[in-house]
């Protein structure tokens, strides 16, 4: 066998086959490196969990705010136009505070302007008539052992959670490459409390048939960075917005005209030293948080279960926070809480 095989080796074909192996690797690496060198940069906020890949070691599985889409975020009617698994879609983005991108809309064709991500439909998302989309940037590979570190730093559901923000390089066709990551300097936590101030978890269950009391929601903001950081705390809780999550059937939000154009006065900027936190209890039965649904003004605890909300810390724009003392340390990003229902269920 050996002699015959040696004789039958056709060198040009062998070199061609070897060259093919090189070209595949070069093609993979070259395309991505080109995007890294020349692509447009922006950041996306994520919620990580930590698995391990037997071939590539530790990685952090990333789920973006643009990964699970509600029908309102789609540029088409998902009931009329059912996209099969693997169908290509384009997520048009816009730059928000601190260059963190927000989703404008997901459509079947690339947007005419602005940055966008190209993704593929993973599956329909029932019962919300939404879509789950994968963009090829859902894994962040880290050195072995660091995956659990990242998970620990992200925090637990019951406590303060710190969002991981991923830096992307984008080419003109919507292909994205992860080029870095950073932690939000501000962590956020949300829990429910009984009206007497006891944590809901420690409260006894209501008697069968009894109406469950509407709880209070306690929001915690914590400076998890190594430098002092300032919060803007406008009166009437105007630094906070209540917004429906993307997959809720209707986009509902309280009308807060009292907050329009509000700028912080002296004493409305709170500086947090590293590790310090600030807490506020929100009562969503108050009229300022009521929303309009089918021409009726309702508190959010009276809405159907699928109407979920996020409480978002959203300080005024930087140009309106220029004067008061401590303004230089103000963090100008926006930070959403976990999704919840007005009756107290936190996702």
């Amino acid at each position: 066998m050996t002699t015959a095989t040696v004789r039958s080796v056709s060198r040009p074909w062998v070199w061609l086959a070897i060259a093919l192996q090189f070209l595949v690797l070069l093609g993979m690496a070259g395309e991505r490196e080109w995007i890294v060198q020349t692509g447009e940069r922006l950041w996306l906020r994520t919620a990580p969990v930590d698995p391990r890949d037997p071939f590539r070691g530790d990685f952090v599985r990333l789920s973006y705010e643009v990964s699970r889409l509600g029908p309102r975020q789609l540029g088409f009617d998902p009931q009329q136009r059912v996209l099969p698994e693997g169908a290509q879609v384009f997520a048009a983005l816009e730059r928000g505070p601190r260059e963190v991108a927000r989703l404008r809309q997901v459509m079947e064709t690339p947007p005419e302007s602005g940055p966008f991500l190209r993704g593929r439909v993973q599956r329909g998302w029932y019962p919300w008539n939404g879509l789950e989309v994968k963009y090829g940037i859902e894994q962040l590979f880290v050195e072995q052992g660091r995956g659990q570190e990242i998970e620990a730093r992200q925090g637990e559901r019951q406590g303060v959670q710190v969002p991981l923000e991923v830096e992307l390089a984008l080419n003109g066709r919507g292909t994205a490459v992860i080029t870095g990551h950073r932690w939000s300097p501000l962590g956020i936590g949300l829990r429910t409390l009984r009206r007497d101030g006891e944590a809901e978890q420690s409260a006894p269950a209501p008697a069968p048939g009894a109406q469950e009391p509407i709880p209070l929601f306690e929001l915690t903001l914590q400076n998890v960075s190594a430098a002092p950081l300032a919060l803007v705390l406008l009166p009437e809780e105007c630094s906070f917005a209540l917004e429906s999550v993307a997959w809720s059937p209707q986009a509902l939000a309280p009308v807060r005209s009292e907050c329009d154009g509000l700028a912080p006065a002296a004493g409305q900027i709170l500086t947090l030293a590293p590790g310090d936190s600030w807490q506020r209890r929100f009562d969503f039965t108050e009229s300022r948080w009521q929303v309009v649904l089918d021409d009726k003004t309702l508190p959010i605890d009276r809405l159907p279960w699928e109407q979920r909300f996020r409480l978002i810390y959203r300080p005024p724009a930087a140009e309106r926070v220029a004067q008061p003392p401590g303004a230089a340390q103000v963090w100008h990003g926006e930070l959403p809480s976990r999704a919840f229902h007005g009756r107290g269920q936190i996702d």
Binding site: I18, Q21, V24, L25, M28, A29, R32, E33, V36, F55, R56, G57, F59, K134, G136, I137, E138, Q139, L140, F141, V177, I178
Partner: peptide
């Protein structure tokens, strides 16, 4: 061994550029 390294290269490039295809 070369072909095994080719496979290792595919996973390595995916790791370096965080490719999740």
């Amino acid at each position: 061994l070369g072909t095994m390294l080719f496979g290792a290269g595919i996973w390595l490039v995916a790791q370096v550029y965080h490719i999740d295809e």
